[in-house]
Write a protein that binds this DNA or RNA. Structure first.
Lengths: 347, 347
DNA sequence: TTGAAAGCGTTACCAA
DNA sequence: TTGGTAACGCTTTCAA
């Protein structure tokens, strides 16, 4: 099935080697022969077999990309950005999902090794920051370069590119403090998980900087880092009757969940209280109230990741850089001066 | 670099063939030999080279998937669903984006052919329904099975799986008519494009069924099928001062854009007018006002697509099925009885 | 139960 | 400027 070099060779009446040389535009081949071979190849609908090519060349131009969830907008944007950069550089992307499970990450990476990819960019599952990462040995055995993106395993000494989560959270909370807010609730997931942990450190830092002490009880632990959990916890908070100046969440979807709960209880954002998200996915601008949020430069993460990986591939060396991208705050309409402060000023 | 069958063979003191047989668990090999080979393979960190395997077996288990945009939630969900089903069936997914451009679709498919994939699921660019699709001949030359999903080229006789767009729109408009709405604006893209065209046909059908004639001037052509364009056109509509009973859009993002324009002008949804989206992406439920929308069963599209493709691959035959999935209306909070009708009833 | 050898489609080296 | 041939890592057939 299909056309092979041999078929073209027979048709033109030359050897396989000549056809190969001609199709790769080696100038050793006489102009006329080359033209004839190209024409015949075209006419026969020849498509080179990269499988065979890779086998004989003993190197692939495939870059693997392990993400956790195709349906998550944030990763969708990351994939889009990465793929563009990989293609630009003449490599071919191969994307797989770990479904946010470490066991699947292992399976997928084993598959990539069997594929003999040149390098891999790994986005680890959100839930796990500690793991016995056994596949690294295999990657080294097969000379496959790798790095982690958007997060990393704390117990593994490997290169990564991610956003300075702590600083992002610091910026958000500092801004809220500047606006007079004090009772700032923090909605996160498990306090042990990196995404939550790092952000809460930023939260505390902002308070400390002002000589204030963060009230740990304002760190609300949500079951999952999603719309529903955030909605539920915000509802509970509102019903409890405590004073809430502001709420920060560890991603934008959670902020939207929170927003829904607030609005359903007649609380106005930002008049009654402020709300800040995290990530700046497209939908934060599309929400009921355009969300103030911490912008993570996805493009920068992907650019640095791809560049570092390709650098490792081309120099045939596994490096160990740790790259932190600095986030910044995007102020939109979900935040304002603390209502308590406003009341005082109004007098 | 890396471990080969030969390395294991040398280590154990048997032939390559024996190692191959043993690792593939052929029972011809003596239990003890097999065990020893497995142990050694494990110890040496052996990973089979699928490149070589594919070459010799002369068949691949890779299914290509061409989408238009990784950052689009709708396709993100489709990819997720497809990938799960492809993996379940023991195949390996290979995903690429056409960036919504036909030229890129061609490039990507050529790449897939060079990869000698077993079959391809193609999501065509939204903008093009007519195209000289030259790659089909190549696909046939190399015996690669294919089908279109979520849309198709009208001038090409090839299998496809998509939602009955016309019927979805019909359901939405019929519902609005039932609620007493008459001045129903339709926000779409170019009237020639399939997604817009089919939906507007459903719109007209719902009117016709009631013996009403659809007013073509209520079909508003947006520059793009996105948030911004929809926002702009809705704004223009509102400012023009015409009476608006309801608005339907061809996707949920557009509905959100529309919603923003309405709210900014003090119009309440659904009290003052109703709004219906299309697609039922996650965010329609997360919007300021949970959106009434037409649900497209992405899971069904992907299931039917993958099943049909695998059927073709395994029976080694290119079929030509056209599969239409029936959509249904999901009523949430953005729709209600027409205010004009309510006023009358209130008297 | 095991081994030798041919072959998959391509490239690359050496000869012609 | 071209051709013959070995090699890439694996599977498979046939013989031993």
């Amino acid at each position: 099935m299909g056309v092979r070099l041999m078929d073209i060779a027979k048709e033109v009446g030359v050897s396989e080697a000549t056809v190969s040389l001609a199709l790769n535009n080696k100038t050793v081949i006489k102009e006329e022969t080359r033209r004839k071979i190209w024409e015949t190849a075209e006419r026969m609908g020849y498509r080179p077999n990269v499988i065979a090519k890779t086998l004989v060349k003993q190197k692939s131009n495939v870059i693997g990309l392990v993400i956790t969830d195709f349906a998550n907008v944030y990763f969708g944007q990351f994939v889009k950005s990465c793929v563009a950069k990989i293609v630009e550089n003449g490599y071919q992307p191969l994307i797989a999902s770990s479904q946010d499970k470490f066991s699947e990450e292992e399976r997928v990476i084993d598959q990539f090794i069997s594929q003999r990819v040149a390098g891999i960019i790994i986005i680890p599952p959100t839930s796990s920051n500690l793991h016995e990462v056994t596949y690294l040995k295999s990657l080294e055995t097969y000379g496959i370069r790798y790095l982690y993106a958007t997060a990393h395993y704390t117990n593994v000494d490997a290169p990564y590119v991610m956003v300075n989560l702590k600083h992002g959270s610091y910026l958000a909370v500092k801004y809220l403090l500047d606006m007079g807010h004090r009772r700032i609730y923090f909605l996160g997931a498990h306090p042990q998980q990196i995404p939550t942990k790092m952000r809460f450190e930023g939260y505390k830092e902002a308070f400390a900087e002002r000589g204030l002490e963060a009230d740990e009880s304002m760190m609300i632990r949500c079951e999952n880092a999603d719309f529903e959990s955030s909605y539920v916890e915000t509802l509970r908070l509102v019903k409890s009757g405590v004073r809430i100046d502001a709420i920060t969440t560890i991603n934008d979807i959670m902020a939207l969940g929170s927003l829904r709960a607030l609005r359903e209880n007649g609380l106005r954002v930002p008049e009654d209280l402020s709300l800040i998200g995290y990530d700046d996915i497209v939908f934060s601008d599309v929400a009921a109230i355009p969300l103030t949020t911490v912008h993570q430069d996805i493009d920068a993460i992907s650019r640095r990741s791809v560049n570092l990986l390709i650098n490792m591939i081309q120099n045939d060396i596994q490096r160990n850089d740790k790259i932190l991208i600095e986030p910044h705050l995007v102020v939109r309409n979900s935040t304002g001066v603390c209502s308590a402060v406003r009341d005082i000023q109004a007098r």
